[in-house]
Design a protein around this nucleic acid. Structure first.
Lengths: 241, 241
DNA sequence: CGTGATGTTGATTGCTGTCAATACGTGTGG
DNA sequence: CCACACGTATTGACAGCAATCAACATCACG
């Protein structure tokens, strides 16, 4: 791994989101993490590596993915700034993780997290909530992959990114390639591109360079995400005129 | 809900699998559950219902599923005897649950489970492991739904059922309809049927009635599950000769 | 300014969905 | 015990969405 420790002084924090409805007024025990930096394309861990750390993204973005023996790939998640990754296996990682862009993150030792969760009930609660929420979002993903059309998937993806990214809610950063998006949505890169073009032609999106789009009509995008097609355009958007 | 309490005397047990590698030698705290019985097709809870109980299947089988606004459905899981269901939401269920066949199960109150998990560290550990394992299996499912072909999905499904069901490992019970299988695998009922026919023609499976199949060639089934096609048959198995 | 990577668009193929008809099997009633 | 009927499963014909193959455009970068 080409990652580089940034500083000797450890970063202090707690990796999991603090459960708001937990009724506790105190904060969970703080952990010390190791700041790390890695360049675009760097492998952070591979499928099968033992789980040593969990990571919190500071800047940049990360993809975790699985590969089938014949090369087919499915990206399991994109981790954006503020988000956690690395919880994809019990003893060994079931996914690999790579930096989509140059990235900075904080590594928290698994053993310390486990010890913390065993000591601190609030930390345990936060961890529990985190795992359950991940579980539910994976179920959403199954519905998307199993039952949604290409353009619905792309629309869902854009809305998801819009909700997760900080900054202007109508400007969406797409740090990953079309190929990555395809492998996240179970589509080919061409189909992703065509769907985006379709939304552009329908006036739902506007290009701000290949890695940034502006949402011009959020309602229409939400309709597209749930399969409600504008009668005029219908599904003709993916076919050449 | 038409479910009926079976007996006044509560069933005693612990709903989650006991983590073997936890290092503990004691058992987790026991909980009392309410035995219930419900007839084939009965709705056990609906999407949006508040989470009151977790259920452990005693006999029969259960499906949990999500429905999109336009009627598309994805079955999230089949729960077989000995398995748990009901953990599909934090405050409210994100899935509905129905009995695939007449079924008997034990309902454990969510509040009691939560209290138990807070009191008993071993119970907490078991719960944690269960959630993580569910998370990983959902990731497997995403790969299946996002990147596998129809016959690969069906083969994976059969292998999964074979591994989960007790009894003769070469005889697989299929209590659910082809329609259910399709909605579990993101396929149409016809495609499921065609895949099964293909395996039958290739000598991999033999019918033992529509709800039971015998695995004649487990190796070939595993090959089919990972996309390794026998050169002669190729993918022609789904096309009419 | 050239060069390679990435993105878009077009043409075609093919897997899987849809529609339709037939077969099977289970359960009921005579 | 058999006949019928309904739900379920299978098979067939066809259509359509998305993958694949291919060419071109655009962008990033040296």
């Amino acid at each position: 791994m080409q990652t580089v420790s940034l500083a000797r002084s450890p970063a202090i924090g707690f990796p999991f989101p603090v459960a708001s409805r937990s009724g506790h007024t105190t904060s969970p025990a703080q952990l010390s993490g190791r700041p790390m930096r890695c360049a675009r394309g760097t492998l952070i861990y591979a499928e099968g590596d033992s789980v040593q750390d969990l990571y919190k993204v500071v800047s940049g973005s990360i993809r975790t993915y699985r590969t089938l023996s014949d090369g087919r790939r499915l990206i399991a998640s994109f981790a954006l700034p503020g988000e956690l990754f690395g919880l994809d296996g019990i003893g060994t990682h079931r996914c690999a993780a790579e930096a989509v862009t140059d990235a900075v993150m904080i590594a928290f030792a698994r053993k310390e997290i486990e010890a913390c969760v065993e000591r601190d009930p609030l930390a345990a609660k936060c961890f529990q909530m985190f795992a359950l929420e991940k579980l539910i979002s994976e179920q959403d993903r199954c519905v998307l992959l199993g039952r949604k059309t290409a353009s619905e998937r792309v629309a869902c993806f854009l809305l998801d990114l819009a909700d997760r990214s900080e900054g202007h809610p109508h400007l969406i950063d797409l740090p990953m390639s079309r190929y990555d998006i395809g492998d996240y949505l179970g589509l080919s890169t061409e189909t992703v591109s065509r769907s985006l073009t379709c939304f552009r032609k329908r006036g739902i999106l506007a290009d701000r360079g290949p890695h940034r789009v502006e949402v011009l009509d959020r309602d229409a995008l939400e309709d597209a995400a749930s399969g409600i097609e504008t009668p005029a355009t219908d599904c003709a958007c993916l076919r050449p005129v």
